Amino acid sequence: HNGKLCKLKGIAPLQLGKCNITGWLLGNPECDSLLPARSWSYIVETPNSENGACYPGDLIDYEELREQLSSVSSLERFEIFPKESSWPNHTFNGVTVSCSHRGKSSFYRNLLWLTKKGDSYPKLTNSYVNNKGKEVLVLWGVHHPSSSDEQQSLYSNGNAYVSVASSNYNRRFTPEIAARPKVRDQHGRMNYYWTLLEPGDTIIFEATGNLIAPWYAFALSRGFESGIITSNASMHECNTKCQTPQGAINSNLPFQNIHPVTIGECPKYVRSTKLRMVTGLRNIPSIQYRGLFGAIAGFIEGGWTGMIDGWYGYHHQNEQGSGYAADQKSTQNAINGITNKVNSVIEKMNTQFTAVGKEFNNLEKRMENLNKKVDDGFLDIWTYNAELLVLLENERTLDFHDLNVKNLYEKVKSQLKNNAKEIGNGCFEFYHKCDNECMESVRNGTYDYPKYSEESKLNREKIDGVKLESMGVYQILAIYSTVASSLVLLVSLGAISFWMCSNGSLQCRICI
Protein backbone atom coordinates (compact mmCIF):
# COMPACT_ATOMS: atom_id res chain seq x y z
CA HIS A 1 0.00 0.00 0.00
CA ASN A 2 1.08 3.59 -0.49
CA GLY A 3 -0.03 5.06 2.86
CA LYS A 4 -2.29 7.55 1.10
CA LEU A 5 -5.96 8.29 0.59
CA CYS A 6 -6.66 8.31 -3.14
CA LYS A 7 -9.52 8.83 -5.51
CA LEU A 8 -11.42 5.61 -6.11
CA LYS A 9 -11.75 5.06 -9.86
CA GLY A 10 -11.34 8.78 -10.40
CA ILE A 11 -13.88 9.91 -7.79
CA ALA A 12 -12.69 11.75 -4.69
CA PRO A 13 -13.70 10.67 -1.17
CA LEU A 14 -15.66 12.82 1.26
CA GLN A 15 -13.27 13.79 4.04
CA LEU A 16 -15.11 14.73 7.21
CA GLY A 17 -12.02 16.28 8.77
CA LYS A 18 -12.69 17.28 12.39
CA CYS A 19 -16.35 16.27 12.07
CA ASN A 20 -17.94 12.86 12.38
CA ILE A 21 -21.03 11.41 10.71
CA THR A 22 -23.33 12.86 13.38
CA GLY A 23 -21.92 16.37 13.10
CA TRP A 24 -22.11 16.30 9.32
CA LEU A 25 -25.71 15.09 9.07
CA LEU A 26 -27.14 17.23 11.88
CA GLY A 27 -25.28 20.25 10.58
CA ASN A 28 -22.95 21.15 13.43
CA PRO A 29 -21.91 24.77 12.69
CA GLU A 30 -18.27 23.69 12.87
CA CYS A 31 -18.96 21.41 9.90
CA ASP A 32 -20.17 24.12 7.50
CA SER A 33 -17.50 23.17 4.97
CA LEU A 34 -19.35 19.87 4.43
CA LEU A 35 -22.67 21.47 3.48
CA PRO A 36 -21.86 21.53 -0.28
CA ALA A 37 -20.97 17.81 -0.31
CA ARG A 38 -22.88 16.05 -3.09
CA SER A 39 -21.02 12.93 -4.20
CA TRP A 40 -18.04 10.82 -3.21
CA SER A 41 -16.43 7.45 -3.70
CA TYR A 42 -16.16 6.73 0.02
CA ILE A 43 -16.37 8.61 3.33
CA VAL A 44 -13.36 9.20 5.59
CA GLU A 45 -13.62 9.85 9.32
CA THR A 46 -10.62 10.50 11.54
CA PRO A 47 -10.27 8.41 14.73
CA ASN A 48 -10.59 11.41 17.04
CA SER A 49 -13.10 13.61 15.22
CA GLU A 50 -14.39 16.08 17.80
CA ASN A 51 -17.38 17.75 16.15
CA GLY A 52 -20.49 15.61 16.48
CA ALA A 53 -23.65 16.57 18.35
CA CYS A 54 -22.86 20.01 19.76
CA TYR A 55 -25.89 20.01 22.09
CA PRO A 56 -25.30 16.94 24.29
CA GLY A 57 -27.32 13.85 23.44
CA ASP A 58 -27.37 10.70 21.34
CA LEU A 59 -28.14 9.98 17.71
CA ILE A 60 -30.38 6.95 18.14
CA ASP A 61 -29.59 3.89 15.99
CA TYR A 62 -26.39 5.58 14.89
CA GLU A 63 -24.74 2.28 13.99
CA GLU A 64 -27.56 1.39 11.60
CA LEU A 65 -27.38 4.85 10.04
CA ARG A 66 -23.66 4.39 9.36
CA GLU A 67 -24.43 1.05 7.75
CA GLN A 68 -27.01 2.70 5.50
CA LEU A 69 -24.60 5.49 4.56
CA SER A 70 -21.88 2.99 3.68
CA SER A 71 -23.74 2.25 0.44
CA VAL A 72 -24.58 5.88 -0.40
CA SER A 73 -22.42 7.58 -3.03
CA SER A 74 -24.27 10.87 -3.51
CA LEU A 75 -27.03 12.95 -1.97
CA GLU A 76 -29.14 16.02 -2.55
CA ARG A 77 -29.57 18.31 0.45
CA PHE A 78 -32.90 20.09 0.21
CA GLU A 79 -35.22 22.16 2.40
CA ILE A 80 -37.88 19.72 3.56
CA PHE A 81 -39.78 22.29 5.67
CA PRO A 82 -39.05 25.87 4.59
CA LYS A 83 -38.06 27.87 7.62
CA GLU A 84 -40.15 30.97 7.04
CA SER A 85 -43.45 29.32 6.06
CA SER A 86 -43.68 25.97 7.82
CA TRP A 87 -44.05 27.10 11.44
CA PRO A 88 -46.11 30.32 11.48
CA ASN A 89 -47.34 29.84 15.06
CA HIS A 90 -43.97 29.06 16.62
CA THR A 91 -40.58 30.63 17.10
CA PHE A 92 -37.93 28.83 15.06
CA ASN A 93 -34.74 30.72 15.88
CA GLY A 94 -33.63 28.77 18.95
CA VAL A 95 -29.86 28.88 19.50
CA THR A 96 -27.47 27.67 22.18
CA VAL A 97 -23.99 28.47 23.39
CA SER A 98 -23.17 24.76 23.03
CA CYS A 99 -23.32 25.16 19.26
CA SER A 100 -21.42 28.42 19.09
CA HIS A 101 -19.95 29.52 15.79
CA ARG A 102 -17.41 32.30 15.48
CA GLY A 103 -18.04 33.32 19.06
CA LYS A 104 -21.84 33.54 18.80
CA SER A 105 -24.59 31.15 19.90
CA SER A 106 -25.92 29.12 17.00
CA PHE A 107 -27.65 25.83 16.15
CA TYR A 108 -27.61 22.96 13.71
CA ARG A 109 -27.79 23.86 10.01
CA ASN A 110 -30.26 21.06 9.23
CA LEU A 111 -32.59 21.36 12.26
CA LEU A 112 -34.78 24.06 13.81
CA TRP A 113 -35.34 24.46 17.54
CA LEU A 114 -39.04 25.35 17.79
CA THR A 115 -40.18 27.17 20.93
CA LYS A 116 -43.33 28.98 22.03
CA LYS A 117 -44.45 32.13 20.26
CA GLY A 118 -45.61 34.67 22.78
CA ASP A 119 -46.98 32.64 25.66
CA SER A 120 -48.31 29.67 23.74
CA TYR A 121 -47.10 26.63 21.85
CA PRO A 122 -50.12 25.51 19.84
CA LYS A 123 -50.26 21.94 18.59
CA LEU A 124 -48.42 21.71 15.29
CA THR A 125 -48.91 19.31 12.42
CA ASN A 126 -46.80 19.26 9.30
CA SER A 127 -46.17 16.67 6.61
CA TYR A 128 -43.91 15.99 3.66
CA VAL A 129 -44.54 13.75 0.65
CA ASN A 130 -41.41 12.23 -0.87
CA ASN A 131 -41.47 13.25 -4.51
CA LYS A 132 -37.74 12.82 -5.10
CA GLY A 133 -37.99 9.39 -6.68
CA LYS A 134 -35.42 8.00 -4.23
CA GLU A 135 -35.02 7.42 -0.50
CA VAL A 136 -35.00 10.53 1.66
CA LEU A 137 -33.13 10.66 4.96
CA VAL A 138 -35.09 12.73 7.50
CA LEU A 139 -33.60 13.75 10.87
CA TRP A 140 -35.22 15.42 13.88
CA GLY A 141 -34.76 15.69 17.62
CA VAL A 142 -36.55 15.76 20.96
CA HIS A 143 -35.45 18.13 23.71
CA HIS A 144 -35.34 16.85 27.30
CA PRO A 145 -35.15 19.83 29.71
CA SER A 146 -33.50 19.62 33.10
CA SER A 147 -36.46 21.07 35.04
CA SER A 148 -40.18 21.82 34.84
CA ASP A 149 -39.39 25.53 34.90
CA GLU A 150 -37.27 25.17 31.77
CA GLN A 151 -40.03 23.14 30.12
CA GLN A 152 -42.59 25.83 30.91
CA SER A 153 -40.41 28.72 29.79
CA LEU A 154 -39.64 27.15 26.43
CA TYR A 155 -42.85 25.33 25.49
CA SER A 156 -45.62 26.41 27.94
CA ASN A 157 -46.90 22.82 28.00
CA GLY A 158 -45.96 20.61 30.93
CA ASN A 159 -47.26 17.42 29.26
CA ALA A 160 -45.91 17.85 25.76
CA TYR A 161 -45.35 15.07 23.23
CA VAL A 162 -43.84 14.57 19.78
CA SER A 163 -45.26 12.13 17.24
CA VAL A 164 -43.60 11.05 13.98
CA ALA A 165 -45.28 8.67 11.56
CA SER A 166 -44.84 7.28 8.05
CA SER A 167 -45.78 4.00 6.40
CA ASN A 168 -42.74 2.30 7.94
CA TYR A 169 -42.15 4.42 11.04
CA ASN A 170 -44.43 5.28 13.95
CA ARG A 171 -43.20 6.62 17.29
CA ARG A 172 -44.46 8.91 20.01
CA PHE A 173 -41.97 10.69 22.28
CA THR A 174 -42.48 12.39 25.63
CA PRO A 175 -39.80 14.62 27.17
CA GLU A 176 -37.87 13.19 30.09
CA ILE A 177 -37.50 16.07 32.55
CA ALA A 178 -34.73 15.38 35.06
CA ALA A 179 -31.68 16.90 36.70
CA ARG A 180 -28.48 15.86 34.93
CA PRO A 181 -24.78 16.64 35.15
CA LYS A 182 -23.68 19.57 33.03
CA VAL A 183 -22.19 18.65 29.65
CA ARG A 184 -21.01 21.37 27.27
CA ASP A 185 -22.63 23.94 29.57
CA GLN A 186 -26.01 22.15 29.41
CA HIS A 187 -28.06 20.30 32.01
CA GLY A 188 -30.60 19.39 29.32
CA ARG A 189 -30.24 16.79 26.57
CA MET A 190 -31.40 16.28 23.01
CA ASN A 191 -31.89 12.90 21.43
CA TYR A 192 -31.73 12.78 17.65
CA TYR A 193 -33.68 10.41 15.42
CA TRP A 194 -33.82 9.50 11.75
CA THR A 195 -35.80 7.49 9.25
CA LEU A 196 -35.61 6.65 5.56
CA LEU A 197 -38.70 7.77 3.66
CA GLU A 198 -39.48 5.69 0.59
CA PRO A 199 -40.45 7.38 -2.71
CA GLY A 200 -44.10 8.43 -2.64
CA ASP A 201 -44.41 7.94 1.12
CA THR A 202 -45.53 10.66 3.55
CA ILE A 203 -44.03 11.60 6.91
CA ILE A 204 -46.16 13.49 9.46
CA PHE A 205 -44.88 15.48 12.43
CA GLU A 206 -47.20 16.34 15.30
CA ALA A 207 -46.08 18.04 18.54
CA THR A 208 -47.18 20.13 21.49
CA GLY A 209 -43.62 20.97 22.47
CA ASN A 210 -39.99 19.84 22.57
CA LEU A 211 -39.68 19.18 18.82
CA ILE A 212 -36.36 19.82 17.12
CA ALA A 213 -37.84 20.02 13.65
CA PRO A 214 -36.31 18.98 10.31
CA TRP A 215 -35.18 21.89 8.17
CA TYR A 216 -33.07 20.14 5.54
CA ALA A 217 -33.23 16.49 4.50
CA PHE A 218 -31.19 14.33 2.12
CA ALA A 219 -32.26 12.47 -1.03
CA LEU A 220 -29.92 9.48 -1.26
CA SER A 221 -28.36 7.68 -4.22
CA ARG A 222 -26.84 4.28 -3.59
CA GLY A 223 -23.42 3.16 -4.82
CA PHE A 224 -22.41 -0.33 -3.78
CA GLU A 225 -18.66 0.34 -3.89
CA SER A 226 -18.97 3.17 -1.38
CA GLY A 227 -18.19 2.82 2.29
CA ILE A 228 -16.93 4.51 5.44
CA ILE A 229 -13.39 4.15 6.72
CA THR A 230 -11.66 5.58 9.77
CA SER A 231 -8.17 6.77 8.92
CA ASN A 232 -5.51 9.36 9.72
CA ALA A 233 -3.98 9.03 6.25
CA SER A 234 -3.80 12.19 4.17
CA MET A 235 -5.33 12.79 0.76
CA HIS A 236 -3.05 12.82 -2.29
CA GLU A 237 -3.34 13.21 -6.04
CA CYS A 238 -3.58 9.53 -6.83
CA ASN A 239 -6.10 7.02 -8.11
CA THR A 240 -6.85 3.45 -7.04
CA LYS A 241 -9.29 0.59 -7.37
CA CYS A 242 -8.93 -0.40 -3.72
CA GLN A 243 -8.67 1.77 -0.61
CA THR A 244 -7.91 0.71 2.94
CA PRO A 245 -7.53 2.86 6.07
CA GLN A 246 -3.77 2.39 5.84
CA GLY A 247 -3.48 3.37 2.20
CA ALA A 248 -4.43 2.51 -1.35
CA ILE A 249 -3.74 -0.88 -2.91
CA ASN A 250 -3.11 -1.06 -6.64
CA SER A 251 -2.66 -4.77 -7.14
CA ASN A 252 -4.15 -7.71 -9.02
CA LEU A 253 -2.98 -10.15 -6.37
CA PRO A 254 -5.78 -12.30 -4.93
CA PHE A 255 -4.84 -11.69 -1.28
CA GLN A 256 -3.66 -8.92 1.02
CA ASN A 257 -2.75 -8.74 4.69
CA ILE A 258 -2.79 -4.95 5.01
CA HIS A 259 -6.23 -4.31 6.54
CA PRO A 260 -9.55 -6.20 6.80
CA VAL A 261 -11.57 -3.06 5.95
CA THR A 262 -11.47 -2.26 2.25
CA ILE A 263 -13.39 -0.14 -0.24
CA GLY A 264 -13.60 -0.97 -3.95
CA GLU A 265 -12.25 -3.93 -5.91
CA CYS A 266 -9.87 -5.37 -3.37
CA PRO A 267 -7.92 -8.58 -2.74
CA LYS A 268 -9.30 -10.84 -0.06
CA TYR A 269 -7.80 -10.20 3.38
CA VAL A 270 -5.95 -13.17 4.90
CA ARG A 271 -3.81 -13.46 8.01
CA SER A 272 -0.90 -15.18 6.33
CA THR A 273 2.32 -13.25 5.76
CA LYS A 274 4.11 -16.05 3.88
CA LEU A 275 1.79 -16.92 1.02
CA ARG A 276 4.41 -17.21 -1.69
CA MET A 277 4.52 -19.07 -4.96
CA VAL A 278 7.91 -20.26 -6.11
CA THR A 279 9.03 -19.63 -9.67
CA GLY A 280 12.65 -20.66 -9.22
CA LEU A 281 14.48 -23.86 -8.39
CA ARG A 282 14.75 -25.96 -5.29
CA ASN A 283 16.92 -24.34 -2.64
CA ILE A 284 20.65 -24.82 -3.12
CA PRO A 285 22.41 -23.08 -0.19
CA SER A 286 25.51 -21.82 -2.02
CA ILE A 287 23.47 -20.49 -4.91
CA GLN A 288 20.66 -19.22 -2.72
CA TYR A 289 23.17 -17.13 -0.79
CA ARG A 290 24.00 -15.33 -4.04
CA GLY A 291 20.33 -14.73 -4.68
CA LEU A 292 20.21 -16.79 -7.86
CA PHE A 293 17.72 -19.51 -7.00
CA GLY A 294 14.44 -19.60 -5.13
CA ALA A 295 12.70 -16.81 -6.98
CA ILE A 296 9.17 -16.35 -5.71
CA ALA A 297 5.89 -14.82 -6.71
CA GLY A 298 4.06 -13.01 -3.97
CA PHE A 299 0.32 -13.46 -3.73
CA ILE A 300 -0.23 -11.16 -0.77
CA GLU A 301 -0.11 -7.43 -1.32
CA GLY A 302 1.86 -6.12 1.63
CA GLY A 303 3.73 -9.40 2.06
CA TRP A 304 5.63 -9.52 -1.23
CA THR A 305 5.18 -6.99 -4.00
CA GLY A 306 4.50 -8.49 -7.39
CA MET A 307 5.74 -11.56 -9.20
CA ILE A 308 9.41 -12.32 -9.71
CA ASP A 309 10.31 -14.64 -12.59
CA GLY A 310 13.30 -16.96 -12.76
CA TRP A 311 14.95 -17.39 -16.15
CA TYR A 312 17.57 -19.73 -17.57
CA GLY A 313 20.64 -18.87 -19.57
CA TYR A 314 24.37 -19.19 -20.01
CA HIS A 315 27.18 -17.36 -18.30
CA HIS A 316 30.71 -17.70 -19.60
CA GLN A 317 34.13 -16.47 -18.56
CA ASN A 318 37.31 -16.75 -20.59
CA GLU A 319 40.42 -14.81 -21.66
CA GLN A 320 38.26 -12.34 -23.58
CA GLY A 321 36.04 -11.53 -20.63
CA SER A 322 32.71 -12.80 -19.42
CA GLY A 323 29.11 -12.53 -20.56
CA TYR A 324 25.49 -13.54 -20.12
CA ALA A 325 22.91 -14.67 -22.64
CA ALA A 326 19.44 -16.04 -22.14
CA ASP A 327 18.44 -19.41 -23.48
CA GLN A 328 15.26 -18.18 -25.06
CA LYS A 329 13.52 -21.49 -25.66
CA SER A 330 13.78 -22.86 -22.13
CA THR A 331 13.14 -19.42 -20.67
CA GLN A 332 10.00 -18.98 -22.72
CA ASN A 333 8.80 -22.42 -21.70
CA ALA A 334 9.34 -21.47 -18.07
CA ILE A 335 7.58 -18.15 -18.49
CA ASN A 336 4.61 -19.82 -20.15
CA GLY A 337 4.36 -22.38 -17.39
CA ILE A 338 4.63 -19.83 -14.60
CA THR A 339 2.19 -17.47 -16.31
CA ASN A 340 -0.38 -20.23 -16.66
CA LYS A 341 0.13 -21.23 -13.04
CA VAL A 342 -0.18 -17.69 -11.74
CA ASN A 343 -3.26 -17.07 -13.83
CA SER A 344 -4.76 -20.31 -12.55
CA VAL A 345 -4.26 -19.33 -8.92
CA ILE A 346 -5.61 -15.84 -9.49
CA GLU A 347 -8.61 -17.19 -11.38
CA LYS A 348 -9.40 -19.57 -8.53
CA MET A 349 -9.00 -17.08 -5.72
CA ASN A 350 -9.14 -13.53 -7.04
CA THR A 351 -12.69 -12.41 -6.36
CA GLN A 352 -12.58 -8.71 -5.54
CA PHE A 353 -14.30 -7.54 -2.37
CA THR A 354 -15.47 -4.50 -0.50
CA ALA A 355 -15.29 -5.19 3.23
CA VAL A 356 -16.55 -2.65 5.73
CA GLY A 357 -16.37 -2.59 9.49
CA LYS A 358 -19.56 -3.26 11.41
CA GLU A 359 -20.75 -0.79 14.00
CA PHE A 360 -22.12 -1.80 17.41
CA ASN A 361 -23.12 0.43 20.28
CA ASN A 362 -21.99 -0.03 23.87
CA LEU A 363 -24.99 -2.22 24.71
CA GLU A 364 -24.24 -4.65 21.89
CA LYS A 365 -20.82 -5.82 23.06
CA ARG A 366 -21.81 -9.47 23.09
CA MET A 367 -23.08 -9.18 19.53
CA GLU A 368 -19.84 -7.48 18.50
CA ASN A 369 -17.78 -10.25 20.07
CA LEU A 370 -19.86 -12.93 18.38
CA ASN A 371 -19.54 -11.16 15.04
CA LYS A 372 -15.78 -10.99 15.48
CA LYS A 373 -15.61 -14.73 16.16
CA VAL A 374 -17.62 -15.44 13.02
CA ASP A 375 -15.43 -13.14 10.93
CA ASP A 376 -12.31 -14.74 12.39
CA GLY A 377 -13.64 -18.16 11.45
CA PHE A 378 -14.19 -17.16 7.83
CA LEU A 379 -10.77 -15.50 7.80
CA ASP A 380 -9.10 -18.70 9.00
CA ILE A 381 -10.84 -20.69 6.25
CA TRP A 382 -9.74 -18.24 3.54
CA THR A 383 -6.16 -18.27 4.85
CA TYR A 384 -6.07 -22.08 4.98
CA ASN A 385 -7.51 -22.44 1.47
CA ALA A 386 -5.01 -19.97 0.06
CA GLU A 387 -2.01 -21.57 1.74
CA LEU A 388 -3.04 -25.08 0.72
CA LEU A 389 -3.57 -24.11 -2.92
CA VAL A 390 -0.22 -22.38 -3.18
CA LEU A 391 1.55 -25.23 -1.35
CA LEU A 392 0.27 -27.77 -3.88
CA GLU A 393 1.13 -25.57 -6.84
CA ASN A 394 4.63 -24.90 -5.48
CA GLU A 395 5.55 -28.59 -5.46
CA ARG A 396 4.56 -28.88 -9.11
CA THR A 397 6.52 -25.73 -9.95
CA LEU A 398 9.70 -27.10 -8.36
CA ASP A 399 9.40 -30.31 -10.36
CA PHE A 400 8.80 -28.25 -13.49
CA HIS A 401 11.98 -26.20 -12.99
CA ASP A 402 14.05 -29.26 -12.16
CA LEU A 403 13.09 -30.71 -15.53
CA ASN A 404 13.93 -27.53 -17.43
CA VAL A 405 17.38 -27.28 -15.90
CA LYS A 406 18.04 -30.98 -16.39
CA ASN A 407 17.24 -30.63 -20.09
CA LEU A 408 19.73 -27.77 -20.45
CA TYR A 409 22.33 -29.76 -18.55
CA GLU A 410 21.89 -32.81 -20.77
CA LYS A 411 22.09 -30.59 -23.86
CA VAL A 412 25.56 -29.38 -22.82
CA LYS A 413 26.71 -32.80 -21.64
CA SER A 414 25.80 -34.46 -24.92
CA GLN A 415 27.89 -31.93 -26.84
CA LEU A 416 31.02 -31.84 -24.66
CA LYS A 417 31.28 -35.58 -24.04
CA ASN A 418 34.81 -36.24 -22.73
CA ASN A 419 36.14 -32.82 -23.77
CA ALA A 420 35.01 -31.68 -20.31
CA LYS A 421 34.59 -33.28 -16.94
CA GLU A 422 31.48 -33.26 -14.75
CA ILE A 423 32.45 -32.26 -11.23
CA GLY A 424 29.17 -33.09 -9.53
CA ASN A 425 27.78 -29.66 -8.65
CA GLY A 426 26.22 -28.82 -11.98
CA CYS A 427 29.54 -27.74 -13.43
CA PHE A 428 31.84 -29.04 -16.16
CA GLU A 429 35.59 -28.52 -16.35
CA PHE A 430 36.93 -28.01 -19.84
CA TYR A 431 40.07 -29.78 -21.03
CA HIS A 432 40.68 -27.16 -23.73
CA LYS A 433 40.67 -23.43 -24.29
CA CYS A 434 37.30 -22.04 -25.31
CA ASP A 435 37.07 -18.51 -26.75
CA ASN A 436 33.88 -16.54 -27.37
CA GLU A 437 33.21 -18.33 -30.63
CA CYS A 438 33.58 -21.66 -28.89
CA MET A 439 31.26 -20.53 -26.10
CA GLU A 440 28.65 -19.43 -28.60
CA SER A 441 28.77 -22.81 -30.28
CA VAL A 442 28.00 -24.51 -26.96
CA ARG A 443 25.05 -22.18 -26.43
CA ASN A 444 23.57 -22.65 -29.89
CA GLY A 445 24.21 -26.39 -30.12
CA THR A 446 26.89 -26.32 -32.84
CA TYR A 447 29.88 -27.22 -30.67
CA ASP A 448 32.58 -28.97 -32.78
CA TYR A 449 33.63 -31.91 -30.66
CA PRO A 450 36.33 -33.29 -33.01
CA LYS A 451 37.97 -29.84 -33.24
CA TYR A 452 38.82 -29.84 -29.53
CA SER A 453 39.15 -33.55 -28.85
CA GLU A 454 42.91 -33.80 -29.42
CA GLU A 455 43.72 -30.83 -27.11
CA SER A 456 41.37 -32.24 -24.53
CA LYS A 457 43.00 -35.65 -24.70
CA LEU A 458 46.46 -34.19 -24.11
CA ASN A 459 45.28 -32.10 -21.16
CA ARG A 460 43.53 -35.05 -19.57
CA GLU A 461 46.80 -36.98 -19.64
CA LYS A 462 48.81 -34.04 -18.20
CA ILE A 463 46.47 -33.27 -15.35
CA ASP A 464 46.36 -36.74 -13.92
CA GLY A 465 43.99 -35.93 -11.10
CA VAL A 466 45.30 -32.46 -10.17
CA LYS A 467 42.52 -29.92 -9.55
CA LEU A 468 41.82 -28.32 -12.89
CA GLU A 469 41.22 -24.79 -11.60
CA SER A 470 44.80 -24.54 -10.32
CA MET A 471 46.16 -25.55 -13.76
CA GLY A 472 44.41 -22.72 -15.55
CA VAL A 473 41.94 -24.95 -17.40
CA TYR A 474 38.42 -23.91 -17.99
CA GLN A 475 35.02 -24.56 -16.45
CA ILE A 476 31.52 -24.60 -17.72
CA LEU A 477 28.81 -24.24 -15.09
CA ALA A 478 25.78 -26.15 -16.24
CA ILE A 479 22.99 -24.87 -14.02
CA TYR A 480 22.29 -21.20 -13.58
CA SER A 481 19.21 -19.16 -12.95
CA THR A 482 19.17 -15.46 -12.35
CA VAL A 483 16.20 -13.49 -11.03
CA ALA A 484 14.53 -10.55 -12.69
CA SER A 485 11.19 -8.84 -12.56
CA SER A 486 8.74 -9.46 -15.38
CA LEU A 487 9.72 -6.19 -17.07
CA VAL A 488 13.45 -6.75 -16.77
CA LEU A 489 12.96 -10.31 -17.99
CA LEU A 490 11.40 -9.17 -21.26
CA VAL A 491 14.17 -6.64 -21.81
CA SER A 492 16.79 -9.28 -21.11
CA LEU A 493 15.31 -11.68 -23.63
CA GLY A 494 15.42 -8.97 -26.27
CA ALA A 495 19.19 -8.74 -25.99
CA ILE A 496 21.53 -11.35 -27.42
CA SER A 497 24.05 -10.96 -24.64
CA PHE A 498 25.84 -8.49 -22.42
CA TRP A 499 29.38 -8.73 -21.25
CA MET A 500 31.17 -8.57 -17.94
CA CYS A 501 34.93 -8.70 -18.38
CA SER A 502 37.14 -10.22 -15.75
CA ASN A 503 40.55 -8.58 -16.21
CA GLY A 504 43.26 -11.11 -16.79
CA SER A 505 41.14 -14.08 -15.83
CA LEU A 506 42.38 -17.41 -17.16
CA GLN A 507 39.18 -19.23 -16.33
CA CYS A 508 36.63 -20.01 -19.01
CA ARG A 509 33.10 -20.71 -17.84
CA ILE A 510 29.76 -21.03 -19.51
CA CYS A 511 26.76 -21.15 -17.23
CA ILE A 512 23.28 -22.48 -17.80
Rank of each mutant, 00 (worst) to 15 (best):
Q256C: 05
Y409Q: 09
I284D: 10
Q332D: 10
F255Y: 09
I308R: 09
N336I: 09
S330Y: 01
V270W: 01
E455A: 15
S441D: 05
G445R: 12
K372C: 02
A355M: 15
K348H: 13
V466A: 11
Q415T: 07
F353D: 11
Q246L: 12
S470G: 08
E469S: 13
F299Q: 04
L487V: 15
D399W: 08
K421C: 04
E359Q: 14
E265Q: 13
N371Y: 13
I346H: 02
Y289K: 11
S234T: 12
L363Q: 05
Y324E: 00
T262R: 06
E455P: 06
V466Y: 11
I335Y: 11
Y452P: 05
N418Q: 14
S502G: 10
G472F: 14
E301Q: 07
N336H: 04
F428S: 08
H315E: 06
G337D: 00
V390P: 01
K365T: 09
S234P: 14
D402T: 06
T397R: 04
S485H: 01
A484P: 01
R271P: 05
D380M: 09
Y449E: 11
E265K: 12
N232S: 11
E461K: 09
D448Q: 07
R282I: 07
K329N: 03
M367S: 02
D309S: 09
D375W: 06
E461F: 10
G247E: 14
S485V: 14
V390S: 01
N252C: 03
W499T: 06
K411Q: 13
V412H: 07
H259E: 02
V488D: 09
N232E: 11
N250E: 13
K348W: 07
E237P: 15
D464L: 13
L506V: 15
M367T: 09
L388Q: 13
Y312L: 08
D399E: 08
V374W: 09
E469Q: 07
N336M: 03
Y449Q: 13
M307T: 04
F400K: 05
R276M: 05
A420R: 07
I263G: 07
L363S: 02
G377M: 13
S414D: 11
N361F: 02
I346A: 02
